[in-house]
Simulated scan of single mutants.
Amino acid sequence: MRDSVAAARERTLGGIYAFSAYLLWGFLPLYFLLLAPTGPWEIVAWRILLSLGFCALLLTATRTWPRLVAIFRQPRVLGLTVIAGLTIYVNWQVFIYGALSGHVIETSLGYFINPIATVLLAVLVLRERLRPTQWVAIGIAAAAVAVIVIGYGAFPWIALTLAASFGIYGLVKKKVGPSVDAVSGLTLETLWLSPIAVVVLIVVGMTEGLTFGAAGWPHAVLLSLAGIVTAIPLLLFAAGARRVSLTTIGLLQFVAPILQFLVGWLLLGEPMPLERWIGFGLVWVALSVLTVDSLLHARRTRAAG
């Protein structure tokens, strides 16, 4: 009895952690907009370096440096963290560019498409066989992209790049598995990206000029929080994912793009012409098909077990 109560409490706590992570990710575009006049290249560079510094403090506070050192004795795992770092860099750069250039709604489309991109990657990379319903969901999503391209007259490259990069990032993290904890993983990913960040800051400093410290102390404080703003949702997500089922995570993952969509549409006033509503509607239908299929498949698997 006591064990079941403890397990239920852990699941509840995990749900709260995961929901909090997606809630923070949903409002992330507003934080980046507050960093004006800092451009997307400088923001990502500081985000990398400050995240690395914050992770180093966490490793010191929790005395978990030995975990990080142990990963260096696993060349395969170390190589995968390099790939993870490069893919998350692409994701961060495109996301912040979208947020600062008036394309928050399109960034939300990217994360709506992400579950479908993940299923497609499972076929292309892992050679998994899809159920017919999953193929239907992919077909509907492809039709949605076609509607947006033809009707709206613009190729949604921001959305597709976000979906592809985060899908590949998730695939790499799955390959890494539990051998790398959340803090060590983010530490390594930002460590590999640090040379890129330094070069970017040098180039920005020589061309446009760095804004850190040049736009007043409130701006400097906000920009200095980039590392914490990056790390906290990732750590909350990792804590939640360990405690709840994949089905729960799958349902909660729609919280972030829904909030981003509402922020772009209602708060920032980005346009939503009929063609976009039709395209988004088709994506939501595809996600509904995929979600129902996943729930039914999980129920059949439990029943068979």
Rank of each mutant, 00 (worst) to 15 (best):
A214S: 15
F27C: 14
V263F: 03
L78R: 01
L193A: 05
P257Q: 03
A226S: 05
G279D: 12
A298M: 06
A304K: 08
L234N: 02
P195K: 15
A61N: 09
L28G: 05
T87P: 07
I116F: 05
Y22R: 13
W25R: 14
F254Q: 02
G15A: 11
L290M: 08
A256R: 06
G281W: 07
L59S: 02
G216P: 00
A8V: 15
T190Y: 00
E106Q: 07
A7K: 14
L124Q: 10
W41I: 04
W157N: 07
S165A: 09
S184T: 02
L13A: 15
P132Y: 13
V119I: 15
L86H: 09
G26P: 01
I196E: 05
L235D: 04
Y31L: 08
L80V: 00
A18V: 06
A298N: 09
F155H: 13
A298K: 03
S194A: 15
S51R: 01
T247N: 15
P115R: 05
V229S: 09
L130V: 05
V289G: 09
P271D: 06
A8Y: 11
I88V: 13
G26H: 02
Y89K: 15
K175N: 07
A231I: 12
I16K: 04
T107R: 03
V104R: 00
L50H: 03
W284G: 10
L234F: 08
Q260T: 03
L188P: 00
Y89A: 11
I83C: 03
I148N: 07
V244C: 07
L50W: 12
T230V: 09
H103C: 12
A56M: 08
A214M: 14
V104P: 13
M206A: 14
L282F: 04
F280D: 00
I258E: 13
S179T: 06
G209P: 14
K174I: 12
V200F: 08
L296W: 15
F155Y: 10
Y152I: 11
L80T: 00
F237I: 08
L120W: 11
N91E: 04
A256I: 01
I105P: 01
F72E: 01
E189N: 03
A146P: 12
T64I: 01
V125T: 09
L35Q: 00
L13F: 09
T187R: 00
A18H: 01
Y22P: 02
R63P: 04
G240I: 01
A215R: 12
V82Y: 02
L251G: 08
P233G: 02
A226E: 00
S4L: 10
A146F: 09
A215T: 04
V90Q: 06
G139Y: 06
G79T: 02
S224H: 11
V180S: 00
T247I: 03
Y17S: 13
A154C: 10
L126D: 14
W46H: 08
Y169F: 14
G167F: 09
V149F: 15
I228Q: 13
A286I: 09
L290G: 05
A6M: 12
V82F: 08
A117F: 03
V255T: 08
L267G: 08
V125K: 07
A239N: 12
I48V: 12
L34T: 14
R242E: 11
T107Q: 10
R76H: 07
L268N: 04
V94Y: 07
I278L: 13
K173H: 11
G26W: 02
A137Y: 05
F254Y: 15
V180E: 00
